[in-house]
Design a binder for these strands. Structure first.
Lengths: 343, 343
DNA sequence: CTGAAAGCGCTTACAG
DNA sequence: CTGAAAGCGCTTACAG
């Protein structure tokens, strides 16, 4: 089945050739390419002209070998890839990171962590095959990434288990504030019996969002009108909505901790003859197809998830360059009002 | 803001050290690592022991430079990344490709194509920085990727504009068959007034799915009960459903060309007092959160999208290795029956 | 500001 | 089956 040859490589210009064309040494050509300040304007122009003429692109392998950098950042993906990619949240973070990367010299590689043999993955990372790693998800309880962070720049997009130490860099959103924003909006709309569908309460984000809902009610002098736990999926949201209704504590609004859950919950509300927003106002979190695609579309807290991905990438690049930066970066958010909370 | 140093690199073992430890030359150690057949069992064992002992991982840059391969495959992402990643379909293809890649020596890099300066991206690709490229999307009308395919192994996940030439390798699903499968199921359920919400009709897939719906009706001796065009989004599906209802041609079933559109359409059906499946049976395409998260869950044609991504990766690897393979790979599909078409 | 030279860590004909 | 040697295409002190 083998063919003669994998398509004869066409002509690929080399640094030396560019240098010759520009009438300089390859050292100088290299300096121009790498933006060294110690080169004449004129030389720069000549080299750039030569580069443009032959369409020169540096050979990454050679460059990386010589400079001992890889210009590569790994995005770590848990082995349960199907679940991971099913959540548009992660896709959006990846999108933001990839977009930011494209504006830099770094490229983003998807690296799936073997859960049976995490050591293999970690060795790959530690052995100089990437300049840094981005962690979006991890088996809670595992602290392997924390260890990795001691020998390699690592940026977390979720809070790793255990205490925050100085060695951890995290880019996150203020989940408590997000829930306050969404819930307060329901209060401002005059709703007084506000329920919630929470995220998984064994996650930090899930608990924080619930706390935001609860504290907002207390501050407004309102009693909670019910709380059910969901799992961030539409089906989970639908199930939680059913339990909420079955509990028979009347509610005129519900803060749902994710748009995916909200989209599932909407169908259940309708089935039970509850009109949105007339009977029940709905506010949620995440501005994506799940919040725009329902009827009516949902008021939501936009967490700027793509911006979070970009911020993670920006942070890892700065860490790689050896900059000294803060432990935590918070990504801003805002409320997007739609029909589901119209008066 | 600069710090002293980017964290002293810890000890990274080198091939030479592994070789010394095993008592062989680095040539031999290299052969063991690369699975050359011309090495003694004993030598292999000794080298592997040394590798395990020091936790050796080959330096990719050196390896790539010496072997003139990159072990990297680029997944091309259009510059409108937000739209691209919003569709779970693409995320699922990426997932499958990444998963397959992790079982090989290849790594998958996300490469965003600059649309203002596509030449820049293409030069990067052509200049030996990747071994192959995967194309999931492209501006129709552009034939640049076809040109690229003449100098670099390229696998398409969508049909490029223009004629299929021998130089094009494509991994796809039979969209016509998918629509036949879904529509025939509605016919088998005894529905006789079957409408459709199509995908964008300026795409090959959109037209093929519509043709499948239409031909199935003809074969069953049924008249079409209406057809509206959607755009693969929930909002687009909702709008199409509204038009379908407004057209006032009664229908008792609808084949919707994507689950995203179906999820939007479901809300509109309910609003209009149409019960699913009692009044209207719904069959769709894509087995993801959009088909499982609605109430009731949707009967759908599972296109095995992750398998498609894996097949794309498998195909590019074979092409890179110089194997002679067929122009087209079709990924199988199957029908998943759920409540939306229950009798 | 520029160049000659060494070296990054591997692979791979070439001999044996 | 194994080793010595050359070389992959860059970067980067080191001199000047």
């Amino acid at each position: 089945m083998k063919e003669s040859a994998p398509a004869a490589q066409p002509w690929i210009p080399t640094l030396e050739e560019v240098a010759a064309l520009a009438g300089v040494s390859s050292s100088t050509a290299s300096r121009v390419i790498n933006g060294s300040p110690r080169v004449t304007e004129q030389t720069i122009a000549r080299v750039n002209a030569a580069i443009a003429k032959v369409g020169y692109v540096p050979n990454r392998a050679a460059r990386n070998l010589a400079s001992r950098r890889t210009q590569t950042v790994a995005m770590m993906i848990p082995e349960r890839t199907a679940e991971f990619f099913a959540d548009p949240y992660f896709a959006e973070v990846i999108q933001g990171a990839a977009m930011y990367a494209s504006s830099t010299e770094y490229s983003l590689t998807l690296l799936i962590e073997s859960e049976k043999d995490p050591e293999k993955t970690h060795q790959f990372l530690r052995r100089g095959n990437v300049d840094g790693a981005l962690i979006l998800s991890h088996h809670s309880g595992s602290s392997t990434y924390r260890e990795l962070a001691r020998t390699l720049p690592v940026v977390f997009g979720v809070r790793p288990p255990g205490e925050m130490g100085d060695e951890i860099h995290i880019v996150d959103v203020d989940n408590h504030a997000a829930a306050v924003l969404g819930t307060q909006h329901l209060v401002d709309r005059g709703r007084t019996r506000i329920a919630t569908i929470t995220g998984p309460l064994d996650t930090f984000a899930g608990r924080e969002r619930m706390r935001g809902w609860s504290e907002t009610l207390v501050a407004a002098g309102l009693d909670p009108a019910g709380s059910e736990e969901g799992d961030y999926t539409p089906a989970g949201g639908a199930a939680a909505a059913r339990r909420l209704i079955a509990a028979d504590a009347p509610f005129d609004a519900v803060f749902i901790a994710s748009a995916q859950m909200a989209s599932g919950a909407m169908g259940v509300l309708k089935e039970n003859g509850l009109r949105v927003p007339a009977d029940v106002a709905v506010a949620t979190v995440d501005n994506n197809v799940f919040s725009t695609g329902t009827t009516p579309p949902l008021t939501t807290v936009d967490l700027h998830t793509a911006a979070k991905g970009a911020a993670m990438m920006a942070t890892i690049v700065r860490l790689i360059k050896g900059e000294h930066i803060g432990i935590q970066t918070l990504v801003p958010m805002d409320l997007v009002e739609r029909e589901s909370t119209a008066i």
